[in-house]
Every structure is written in structure tokens, then in C-alpha cells.
Design a protein around this nucleic acid. Structure first.
Lengths: 112, 112
DNA sequence: GCGACACTCAACAAAACGGTTGACAGTCAT
DNA sequence: ATGACTGTCAACCGTTTTGTTGAGTGTCGC
């Protein structure tokens, strides 16, 4: 069950393509949250939110560890760097100075 | 048939989540191409490629104008700026120096 | 131990996706 | 006018997505 690099970036963009998932990412980017906490603002079943979390996990944008009966969901920014790189490439920004976003995402990655 | 801003960014990320569509974008980023030309490298029917082009069009990443019997497909980078902004925000890079990518995408937009 | 809590799993359903094929409609070249 | 070329439309197919419910599992507090 290997996952090619191409498959992974597909998962990342797919994960970002849903407003609920982007909202979840915004929340955990500000601090770890349990699934129940993440579900609270949504007019959606807990199970639905759980599935969104799984999609984010598949994209490796989210990390979950068990903490008692709850899960602690943690933001993992690394794949954003890959996504940003593709946007840069598409914008034709090859080799120019503008890889600032990439550099900063790498920095964030180092500090985590 | 209005399209909310949120719907639009959904379309953008969705469009980017398929390797064939990213390949199409790479090609037209280097120059306009007809649909038949775009289809050539793919092991896929012309109709399938035509549908991918429609998805890119919905995301406003692609612009098509009729030129005789063919269509001229043109790259439209503007939505990449919105996508990059979301990545920046998620990376928690608010207000820091690192909006280089955004600035350059805006510049690209201005020049088109 | 008992119940409330935090989730997952399994099954289902509706809609969207990604692809095919066949028929059709303009447009260009002769 | 004919025919080749470029592409769409409509129908269909199987799979994935996105959501629902209901039942089940493990954990915490008392």
C-alpha cells in the first residue's frame, strides 16, 4: 500500500478543496483540538467530522494521537510546502526570489 | 447562478487535485494550446480531456476562446493567488515578510 | 460496576467524479 | 459540395465523496 508522491499531492489538494476541512485546519493551526471540539461549530454529525479528519490525515495535514478517551488532533504544515511549490511552479516563478513562502514553511517544519 | 467566494476556492483546489489537470496547466502556462494538442500526451479520450478543461475553466484557471474550428486555451493564474493566500494563512504566516509569492502572483496578474 | 463520554465501524443513500462511446455541429481546405 | 478536423452533447458506467444512522468499543468519573 505504497503511496506515490503524485498521489500524495492529489490528497493534499483534495483535502483543501472542502470548506469544512479548511475550517478544521484553521482551528488546529491555532492549537490542538479533540474531534468533538472540532465538530462543535458544524451543523454536521460527529461521524461526518471524523471522516473529514481522516481525509486530512491521509493528506498528512493532520496528526492524531490518543489522549485518554479523546484524540488530540495536531496541525502538520509540511504538505503545504509541496502545494505551495506547485503553485509557484505554475505561476512561472522558477528560480526567482519569490520562494519566500516555501522558505518559511520549511522553517516552520524545522521548528515543529 | 451566482458563485460564492468559498465555492470558487473549492473549485480551484479541486481543479488542482488531479494530475492530468495539473499537467494541462503546466502546458498552457508555457503557451496557449488547443484541446486536441492538450489531449495528445494523454492515454485518454478527447472528451475526457475536454471535461478536465471544463473543470479548469470553472475554477477560472483557464480561459478559452474560439479560433476557427479549434479553441485556444489560455492560462489564467489569478486564482492561484487566492490559493496561495490560504496556504499562507494556514501556515500562520500572517503579516510577516513571507507574502512574496502573493506579491509576485499579483504582479503576474497585472502584466496579463 | 455503571453510566456518560469520545469515538469508530458498518451499512446505507444521494450526488459528484472520471471515464467511455456514439451522434452531432461548426469550420477549413479542396 | 465533400470530407476531414475540432470539439461538444447526451447517455451511460463504475467508483468515490459526503453525508446519514445505529450499533459497538474503550475510557473516565463516581
Amino acid at each position: 500500500m505504497v503511496e506515490s508522491k503524485s498521489e500524495h499531492i492529489d490528497h493534499v489538494f483534495h483535502a483543501l478543496a472542502h470548506p469544512a476541512r479548511r475550517a478544521i485546519l484553521q482551528r488546529i493551526a491555532r492549537g490542538e483540538q479533540s474531534i468533538t471540539e472540532l465538530a462543535a461549530p458544524f451543523d454536521m454529525s460527529l461521524e461526518a467530522v471524523s471522516k473529514h479528519v481522516q481525509v486530512l490525515e491521509r493528506a498528512r495535514l493532520l496528526d492524531r494521537t490518543r489522549a485518554g478517551r479523546a484524540y488530540r488532533c495536531r496541525f502538520r504544515p509540511a504538505p503545504l510546502r509541496d502545494a505551495a511549490k506547485i503553485l509557484s511552479e505554475l505561476a512561472g516563478l522558477w528560480g526567482r526570489q519569490l520562494d519566500g513562502l516555501e522558505k518559511l514553511l520549511l522553517e516552520l517544519e524545522r521548528r515543529s
